[in-house]
Amino acid sequence: MAVTDSIRAAFTPTGKLRASLNLGNPILANRDAATGRLFGVSIDLADEFGRRLGVEVEQVVFDTAGKSVEALADERADIGFFAVDPARGASIEFTAPYVLIEGYYLVRNESAIRSNADVDVAAHRVAVGKGSAYDLFLTRELRHAQIVRAPSSPTVVRTFLDGGLEVAAGVRQQLEADAARHPGLRLLDERFMVIRQAMGMPGSRGGDAARFLREFVEDMKSSGFVAEALARHRIDGALVAPAG
């Protein structure tokens, strides 16, 4: 679709494209400790979308997915980058996913938990990032284990360790990095979910704007833009999603 004045206006009611960015998922967005500059796949996509619209991008930054979702739902942002989940669909219009991310469980080496099937028992407490895709998914799926919500996804393993919990759940890469810093931890051998990471916009912005955003994501996948961004940021394990 061509950029029209009405499409541009739908995405920029304040005159800028406000991009809701979640730093709680290191696969997608990070902040350079030395310069403070944001970098990652979602930042690249936001910048490219702004370029196509011919508008300035305003970064609206959060430390958790839940806060980032709320900003878009409340229309304090115009686009965002989230895992597709039914609980978020009431107020947000999603594209097809652009990246697939694996969710894994982490336990202590001496734990008797050996498979995903061993996790959901009443004696187990599972640490998750509050409002994350894992939180939403496991809240629906776990019938017996207790969910303990950490303030954010990057603090899940600290919550797991400090609280003496039995299981931590999160992005495989984040858990692997935490396990490397804390000896005596191991990931289970199989993923418990695949997160479909998509772009989203407020549902009130209209069908033409939603189609424009969906077509943008498909172009970013088919052109190699997403694959090149994953390689440039040295992201291992995330996969470019198939055509939507």
Rank of each mutant, 00 (worst) to 15 (best):
L161G: 00
F192I: 12
G170C: 12
L175T: 03
G184T: 05
V157D: 02
A177F: 01
L175W: 02
L136G: 03
S132D: 01
A179N: 07
A145D: 08
G131W: 02
G184Y: 11
Y134I: 02
Q146S: 13
K130N: 10
Y134N: 08
V128I: 13
R140W: 08
S132A: 09
E176H: 02
R149T: 09
D189W: 01
V148K: 04
F137H: 15
S152R: 02
Q174G: 07
L185T: 09
P151K: 06
F160G: 06
L185Q: 10
V167K: 07
Q174K: 01
A168D: 05
L142S: 09
L136E: 09
L138H: 01
D189C: 01
F192D: 09
T159Y: 09
S132H: 03
P154V: 04
A198M: 04
Q173G: 10
I147C: 05
R191Q: 12
A169M: 12
Y134H: 15
V167A: 05
L188N: 13
R143Y: 00
R143W: 00
K130V: 09
G129T: 01
L161N: 01
Q146Y: 01
G163D: 06
T159H: 08
T139F: 05
S153D: 13
T155N: 06
Y134F: 13
F160D: 04
V148G: 04
A133K: 01
R196N: 11
L138C: 06
P151D: 08
A180N: 06
Q173D: 08
E141N: 08
I195E: 15
G129P: 06
F160K: 08
L142G: 07
G184R: 10
R186F: 13
A177N: 10
E190K: 15
Q174I: 04
I147F: 09
L136T: 05
S153H: 10
